[in-house]
């Protein structure tokens, strides 16, 4: 039946609002990453630092659809975006990166180990492939309790070559556990491209070999990611079975801060290749789509940008004015 004008316009409103929020989230992630890079070079942040620039749609297209708390998220050390999308305040993330007591892990974890259990975020993991066996247990706990929740587990193309990943896939497939795997295929594992590390680069086949349904999706397009994730999540919530999405994307910057500093990335890709991928930028793409649909004007985009800059600035002010962890907390939390 044809929809009335009123129905169409209220659907439009919902779309507009929702997409505006996702657009804002992607812009927040991008600005946040650019800012932490700066702060690293001001020696306010230490350790390793892995940025998500270029991969924003993988987070913005999926995590806002989750029921948090209730659902769970696991991911890699490239985890700032995931924390922000889970609703961890930018201040608590920034404070963690600066090693402050107000950080989301009290300053004990740092960039690779952001965590926010109250929002369902079970943390970043510094070990390649590490979160995947853990997702098996999280999926089991969901099934055990008999809820309709889902565990979303992010990991990289390089991680697909870890033995533990395949043990976990098999068991998740065998026990039929409600886990959504998100393969962040940004084409490289540090200095090694997929073609140089992987005999069978059809990752979907590998998931299917373990009894997990899967598909390959354009990770540079938020709408495409969102739609695929929505279907996958529906499938998991109705059948209780796992699902696998390979999302193709590109990391714009070096693997981590070291790779950026030494220009190590020049050994495995050209500036032209980077520039070519940037033409498909997920943020620009969503903005274009929204402008074409009349959801967003350039002025509104500008305003979002400004608000986000203020938000990131506030996060820095919060973090920088927060105290370091108390020295006598060194031995706290070794045991529960």
């Amino acid at each position: 039946m044809a929809k009335t004008v009123a129905e169409r316009s209220s659907e439009d409103d919902i779309q507009r609002q929702e997409l505006t929020e996702l657009y804002r989230l992607m812009v927040l992630i991008r600005r946040f990453e650019e800012t932490v890079y700066q702060k690293f070079h001001e020696a306010k942040i230490g350790g390793y630092l892995h940025r998500y620039d270029g991969q924003e749609a993988l987070v913005a297209g999926i995590i806002p659809q989750l029921q948090l708390p209730g659902d769970y998220i696991l991911c890699t050390y490239r985890d700032h975006a995931h924390a922000l999308a889970c609703g961890t305040s930018p201040g608590a993330v920034m404070a963690e990166l600066m090693g402050r007591a107000t950080g989301c892990a009290g300053g004990k974890g740092g960039s690779m180990h952001l965590i926010d259990p109250e929002n369902g975020f079970l943390g970043g993991d510094g070990i390649v492939g590490g979160p995947v066996p853990v997702s098996l247990g999280v999926g089991y706990a969901i099934k055990y309790r008999g809820t309709k929740n889902v565990c979303v587990c992010y990991f990289g193309d390089g991680a697909m070559n870890q033995g533990g990943v395949h043990e976990a896939f098999n068991m998740v497939g065998l026990y039929k556990l409600p886990v959504l795997y998100i393969l962040e295929n940004n084409q490289f594992a540090m200095g090694t491209s997929v073609s140089r590390s992987t005999a069978q680069p059809d990752f979907v086949k590998k998931a299917e070999a373990h009894g997990i349904r899967g598909e390959r999706v354009d990770g540079m397009d938020l709408l495409v990611v969102r739609e695929a994730a929505s279907r996958a999540l529906d499938h998991i919530r109705t059948t209780g079975e796992p699902y696998f999405l390979e999302l193709n994307c590109y990391r714009y910057v070096g693997h981590g801060i070291g790779d950026d500093n030494t220009k190590g990335w020049q050994t495995y890709r050209t500036e032209d290749e980077v520039a070519e991928w940037k033409l498909r930028d997920p943020i620009a793409k969503l903005r274009d789509t929204m402008e074409a649909r009349g959801y967003l004007t350039p002025e509104q985009a500008e305003k979002i940008d400004e608000e986000v800059r203020e938000e990131v600035h506030a996060a820095i002010v919060f973090a920088e004015s927060s105290p370091e962890p108390a020295l006598d907390s060194l031995y706290d939390h070794v045991y529960s």
Binding site: G46, G99, G107, G109, P325, L330, Y331, V334
Partner: peptide, 16 residues
């Protein structure tokens, strides 16, 4: 080394 997983924060790391 202090018998703790290595903390991130600079001051705690220094203490460990």
């Amino acid at each position: 080394g202090a018998d703790v997983p290595m903390p991130y924060a600079k001051n705690l790391e220094r203490a460990a």
